[in-house]
Amino acid sequence: MATASLTSRPASRTAADPGEHVLRRRRKVWSYVAMSALAVVFLFPLVFMFVSSLKPDAQILGDVGSPRAFLPVGDISLDNYFGVFDRVPVGQFLVNSVLVTVLTVGLGLVVNSMAGFALSRMRWKGRSVVLAIVIATLIVPFETIAVPMVYWVSKLPTLVMEGGILKYDFGWLNSYHVQIVPFIANAFSIFLFTQYFSTIPKSLDEAARIDGAGWFTIYRRIIVPLAGPAFATVAILTFLPAWNQYLWPLMVVQQEELRPVMVGMQYFFQLNTAWGEVMAYTSLITLPVLIVFLSFQRAFVSSVAASGVKG
């Protein structure tokens, strides 16, 4: 009796303990199984893209029915990439996209952070009106104004050099500035800056004012150096849409040498679709973004999370 209870008690305890243990472990295993399966789902098209960009067209189509579609096997070469460079001015497209992206993001950081500064830390007449405009424009998706905007920019004045004389003309179509200027000011960026700046103690401004600093100096020397995370967030959130612009340049840029990478893709569909070259082109324009993302993934993740906090 005594021995039985002695043996049964530890036995029951060990049965309970591993019970929970096993359950937790089983959940863990299933979580990994589920996440790995999902990882395959999310990655296979991209793996297929990169792998196919190295294969001749016939082999891409031939490999579709087997796992070879995802493996760099068979007739592997960079021929498709050379083909792409031969057929379309990819270099020019890449330069255009980099230029448009860098200027849109860079000028956006300056213009929107200054606005955020004035809105969050200064008192001036009309402040509440401007704030109301910013909040109201937050919800306007670009697609709603795209069509009227084409009409609008086709009427805007622009300066041109003609035979050494500076003249002005009408119409912003087919230019770099039509791809950049409309996207510099961004209500959401202003909103993020305003929020971030208002968390910095106001006493810093007052101290600087007493020392005789002007408002712009306070912005540049005190607030900007303290707001690194806000600048990183806005840079990341404006970088992707700028690089991925499609609808707008499709409508306002017909001149080949001004087109960005996403619109440049159209060249491949006018001819017989050469899938190997298409894959090489899409790989080429996806890689820069993937590299930026993977190098700054922590910042990316927190930026996106920050964009959701506003709700």
């Binding site: 606005a115 004035a118 401007v130 405009i133 905007m149 200027v181 000011a185 209500a187 002007g214 408002w215």
Partner: peptide, 20 residues
């Protein structure tokens, strides 16, 4: 402060009005 505030918000405001 009023003048500086308006000046600093002006570029963004002008662009938002023009393109939104």
């Amino acid at each position: 402060e009023g003048r500086s505030g308006l000046a600093m918000v002006a570029p963004a405001l002008l662009l938002l009005v023009l393109f939104l």
